[in-house]
């Protein structure tokens, strides 16, 4: 099973594409997680119903078995790491963006935390 950290922006979509490709290659299933901490009133990375529908259609048309969850009120990194703890989870796919050191200090870096803490392989991709 491959876990994809999805967000409603080019980075998330890049992760989705690469994740689908890997799943087809390994002949395995997908778990797509689009989490939000719910901290802000509006979170542009959280996929709304229209986008969710589109993603599900896309996944279905790729012929891959998938599960799409949208946990609310959780920490994104923790959620993904917990998913990777499952015995059948083989790979984590995330989209990464560049963050300067100051940026990381002030705004945090989910991708850095995942890259360093995940015990299993992580595939970090960028949008084309």
């Amino acid at each position: 099973m491959i876990v994809i950290g999805y967000s409603a922006d080019p980075y998330g979509r890049a992760a989705l594409e690469h994740g689908i490709a890997e799943a087809k290659l390994r002949q395995t299933t997908l778990l797509v997680i689009n989490a939000t901490s719910g901290e802000s009133y509006a979170d542009p990375r959280f996929a709304q119903s229209g986008e969710v529908h589109d993603v599900e259609e896309h996944l279905a048309s790729c012929g891959v078995e998938f599960e799409l969850t949208q946990p609310v009120g959780v920490d994104t990194a923790d959620e993904l790491l917990t998913a990777m703890d499952r015995p059948d989870a083989a790979l984590l796919v995330i989209g990464i963006r560049h963050r300067s050191p100051v940026g990381k200090l002030l705004l945090g870096s989910v991708s850095q935390q995942l890259l360093l803490e995940c015990p299993k392989p992580v595939l970090a991709v960028k949008p084309a």
């Binding site: 901490s37 901290e39 920490d75 200090l105 002030l106 945090g108």
Partner: peptide, 8 residues
């Protein structure tokens, strides 16, 4: 209230 960025 939930913000975990302690330093910030």
């Amino acid at each position: 209230l939930g913000s975990r960025h302690y330093i910030r």
